[in-house]
Design a protein around this nucleic acid. Structure first.
Lengths: 252, 252
DNA sequence: CAAGAAACGCGCAGAATTCAACACGAGCCA
DNA sequence: TGGCTCGTGTTGAATTCTGCGCGTTTCTTG
């Protein structure tokens, strides 16, 4: 088991249970306690956890851990979704992208395009695309949320007010017929809504685990989007319900 | 097995598992570990993965802190400058930072502060600080320049217009008595000037190689800054000239 | 409050990994 | 044929990771 796997395991345990024990980790991963402590010290240095005697607890809010530790989850589905979403983007278009692991995956699938303007409020996507001279990258500005790397707030929405987009790709945390598209954070939802309002076409990307889920804050109703791209593991009844609500659903 | 096949295999493994091991790849493809490492180094250069000891992880799953800047040039001097500059920042202050390797170093030195608001137009600094829940990070927005990771243009300057800062830390490419502070790009210079205009106190950080240099675009005159922090390798005559022009110079 | 147990930090040595440098062979072209 | 480049493998030094032992700190329990 490599160090990256250990780190991943620790972070996963932390997000599930809120705390971890050194002994449990030793048993689960078959390495010495010294190694576990070194891993914990590393993560502590990154302010991702606080150490306790016998283990560690999650640092601050844990339901939403930094993206770079989570993106391995359902990676294959997200890749397929990303490729499909990239197919919706015409060369030379001006598109918007919100934050999220799936949209970040889409950003990677767009790196080889020529002549494309990308507007985003996600620092992850911005870092991903900033080195590509073939793309024009516009960042909205705003206050950064440590949990999601998204820029939110009045500054972001003010920047958006002057822009018009051909297409916007939106990542969400929950999709339900009753509550529409939802996310974990209210200001984020508001900023995402502002981005959606500037686009002629709205495509939502989300892996199938989000179907039927309702997160804390509402972004918009199902009717405000033009298409949902998700993976084929989606529950058939949920898909039918969304389609019945009038939203085009693509399974990949 | 050709190189393209190996690359393909590595990418596939990475997207399925999120990580790969050098040993596994050697067994799977029947080539030497050196070749695998060369392949991984190639993909790392394309930002498709991040290397770890014993293998690599999908880009975005990295457990280390954001991009270690390769520019180890004058790293020792920059660290000293960064520590000194961090000493100018009071807890609870609202500060601005422009882009540059030296200012990024200052950002690192500020990560353990409590209650600090940082406004920046640099994606590098934003990535560095975004993960810290103890800091409030405000990003200006704007168009990203691939060469410097800075956000520039009207969007950035518009965002700045509403903010007032206690202190701004500026990185520059040239310092001269005749031309003042200069940088390599004209729009960047304009955006930096806009940031300076919002601050009550302006501190310029630059290693001593910048003294006496004149870059393409002028940011502001020496008189518009309150202090210059540079390293003690600075040419004594140049330092005297700057001091004679009325600017406080600190050597570290 | 005190004693025992558990956990921690530190230093060290062995193992694994990486890097830099060089050697070898295939393919290409003059 | 000879020389050249490119990709690959090998070697040895340097770096990093890991596990163990020991003294110290912290927690628990009576």
């Amino acid at each position: 088991m490599r160090q990256s796997d250990r780190i991943n395991h620790i972070i996963t345990q932390l997000s599930v249970n809120g705390s971890v024990g050194v002994g449990d980790l030793v048993d689960a991963m078959g390495v010495s306690a010294a190694t576990i402590r070194r891993d914990l010290a590393l993560l502590e240095g990154q302010r991702l956890l606080a150490r306790t005697h016998g283990g560690a607890v999650a640092h601050g809010v844990l339901y939403e851990l930094p993206l770079r530790y989570r993106s391995a989850d359902r990676h294959e589905q997200k890749s397929r979704i990303a490729r499909a979403a990239a197919g919706r983007v015409a060369d030379g278009a001006a598109i918007g992208m919100t934050g999220g692991t799936t949209t970040t995956e889409v950003a990677r699938a767009l790196t080889d395009r020529r002549r494309l303007t990308v507007v985003t409020n996600s620092l992850s996507i911005a870092s991903e695309l900033a080195i590509r001279p073939n793309l024009k990258l516009v960042v909205t500005g705003g206050v950064a949320r440590p949990e999601s790397y998204e820029l939110v707030g009045p500054l972001a929405e003010g920047a958006l007010a002057t822009l018009n987009l051909d297409l916007v790709l939106v990542g969400v945390d929950g999709i339900s017929v009753e509550q529409g598209f939802t996310t974990h954070h209210d200001v984020e939802a508001h900023t995402n809504h502002a981005l959606i309002a500037r686009a002629r076409r709205v495509v939502v990307v989300a892996d199938s685990s989000k179907l039927g889920q309702i997160a804390f804050a509402r972004i918009c109703g199902l009717g405000d989007a033009d298409e949902l791209i998700t993976d084929r593991d989606a529950d058939a009844a949920e898909v039918e319900a969304v389609r019945a609500a009038g939203l085009e659903v693509t399974l990949v």
